[in-house]
Nucleic acid binder design. Sequence first.
RNA 1: GGCGGGUUGGCGGAGAGGUUACGCAGCGGAUUGCAAAUCCGUGAAGACCGGUUCGAUUCCGGUACCCGCCUCCA
Length: 473
Amino acid sequence: MVEIRLTNTKTRGKQVFQPIDPENLRIYLCGPTVYDRAHLGNARPVVVIDMLVRLLHHVYGADRVTYVRNFTDVDDKINATALQRQKAGVPGSLEDLIRERTAETIAWYHADMDALGALRPDHEPRATDYIPQMIAMIESLIDGGHAYAKDGHVLFRVRSFAEYGRLSGRSVDDMIAGARVEVAPFKEDPMDFVLWKPSDAELPGWDSPWGRGRPGWHIECSAMSHELLGDSFDIHAGGIDLQFPHHENEIAQSCCAHPHGEFARIWLHNEMLQVEGKKMSKSLGNFFTVRDLLEKRVPGEVIRFVLLSTHYRKPMDWTSDKAQTAEDTLWDWRVLTKGVTPSTPDPRVIEALADDLNTAGAIAVLYSLKDDPARLLASAQFMGLLLPDMGDWMRHDLGRIENVNFSVKDALESLTAKLTDLRAAAMASKDFSGVDALKTALTDAGVEVRMSKTGIELLAGPRLDAAALGALL
RNA sequence: GGCGGGUUGGCGGAGAGGUUACGCAGCGGAUUGCAAAUCCGUGAAGACCGGUUCGAUUCCGGUACCCGCCUCCA
């Protein structure tokens, strides 16, 4: 059996992955807060964990892996949108309206992640479907002395959990000294965090022992992972920015509510994504969603390739140059493997992936398989690349041409004939200027020109320019 | 201030204490009317300063610079 090694944030080192139960592997990924389209940074953990899940499927069997990724559908921005709609006259309670709003964004999320070739998780729980479980967990925390109710709020008593700060390497005292914590009159200690907070009439709320209110951030993941995966599960993943406070607080809640479990055994954190060397932010103008890229005709497969070309524990820089190189590579591979039946994945690819998800190393192996297209195809497909239903982008440019009322196939045939005639004439006259002009124009239009003694071949490239090609007819 | 990540050849980006990463680009050759594609060959690296070692880009310590988190942002 393939030995999988993973870097565990909790122990700060790479370790051999030992399932708690090889018959039932359990993995939880912190999913999106569904207030809007997913940005590119949201896609990184999804693609990384998709790669891990595919590997686990291969090693242990797909039916022995349970993959959970939640939707957090309680959030101030969602609430604001719901309230706005209600005030605009849309019928229904605020709870109904946030449900409608998040149903929209969840559908977008699915479409976008599907485009990246990410497998759907086995469970995609929505926070608002687990309010009773959250309330029950909060009650048990109060009973155990780990939480207290005050003024309609319920807070987690950080000092009651000696391990608090261990995951992120912080101490409670240091953090208070850092003085960036919210001080509120209802807190016993500045580091205590909210489990439940009251809602007024303009906020969605659910009945609870502490009055009508809504859950704080963090508790939803503890409640849902427990409900679906139990006291202990194998892997918990997410972006490194969630390490503190989100994951630290999850650990505190879950371990105090279920002291006999170990919660998550391995914590996987991916590093952040940057754009052209800078943090992606709206103020810098380099913020974009996955959908923005797809609409700019950057294929989902290309996005996936770029995301996998940097190791997940390193900062990843998205550049348009990388996207273009990736597109060229995938184009070549798709041409090379056209009509080929996949054989079996190269063991070196699996070995690289098993070594702490070395996706960049695995891609390097793919490059070495040019002479064995069947194995290249199988290996790439193992990584969620070169799959049949992700290849539509190769026809995007052809589609554009069809809009210009001719088919690319006919156009290239007729231009091949034209170029052949021109060359034959030039061979006789020794004046090649006409041939060169057409050849240059074709190249500029994104067509690969192959001339040999046996004939001329024109091949559409990844960046075929429809209008330019049409002008040559 | 606290915590964490990064720094590899022109660019991107891995592994390994000593033997070619790899890709793109470049250069030389074959081929071509000239190119392209293809094939063959090839130069080029590990921020800085110390330490351990027979030997470090790889381990340890420090410095510099960049980035992130500590603000419901993956």
